[in-house]
Amino acid sequence: MIFSTLNGVLYGMLLFLLASGLTLIFSMMGVLNFAHASFYMLGAYFGFQISQWLGFWVALVAAPVLVGLIGAAVERWGLRTVHKWGHVPELLFTFGLAFVVEELVQMVWGKLPVDYRVPALLDFSAFELFGTTYPAFRMFMLLISVAIFLVLLLVLTRSRIGLIIQAALTHPNMVAMLGHNVPKVFMMVFGFGCGLAAIAGVIAGPALVTQPSMAHVLGPILFVVVVFGGLGSLPGAFIASLLIGLIQTFAIAINYSLGDALGAIGIGRPISGALSDMWQVTVAQIGPVVPYLMLVLILIFRPTGLMGTRET
């Protein structure tokens, strides 16, 4: 139970690192950045490569900075150029970019998962409870993501740049009129968002698996988080991330099937017939689908998302 909660929160926090950047970009520029998870993957691969040369701790700092710069460059010379033609070309641009990044990663690092190891310093178990140990690296992941969340919160609500970003979220033209360089703010936010995704990549790489399909696996879930939480709403993204993290972890622990439910209310368990398989599917098996079900439901019943103010 405690471990499931820890795992769920950890997964949720990782999602949040990605979703926070994505939701800011989405609400500021109106662009659903399909390539966002690719920056997460780049972060993991850069982290792997740099930690081979200079060690994990250098990688933890250098990889996000590099990916952030790449992100800023993509915004400056890619998105901004495409922007004149409207939102659809922008969308297609990021869509294509995701494939380009995946191919590039395959060309440089190959199609096999790379051997990205947990740094020796953190390769021990943090604590033991009821005979089960919990790896220190996971605690480290958790701490890093919580720390970044707090910093992000402070920057956005307490600093001047945070105020400008918040203003640009809702009234970009007004902010530009006041003399702020809104395109530059966009570029910075885009780069910063990519950098956050890269941090998630660097710390998730050793614990999960660093492979070319990692962006594909995470991409769709990210959109669920952003839409579910509400556009441009960081608290919404935060709640949605944790919720999805916990739901996915806890769903695995539940062995309850539709057939059991029917049995419990006295109808009896159907064991034969064309649909007999359906009754035996447990919650654990459909766990991975639950977030998408949530996406569909929230769009029907609350199109603005959990805490959003605009319609998707």
Binding site: F3, N7, Y11, G131, T132, I252, A253
Partner: peptide, 13 residues
């Protein structure tokens, strides 16, 4: 599809 089996291991335990 699974990159982290920790929840399953907790269940086995």
């Amino acid at each position: 599809k699974i990159t982290d089996f920790a929840p399953y291991i907790a269940k086995i335990k």
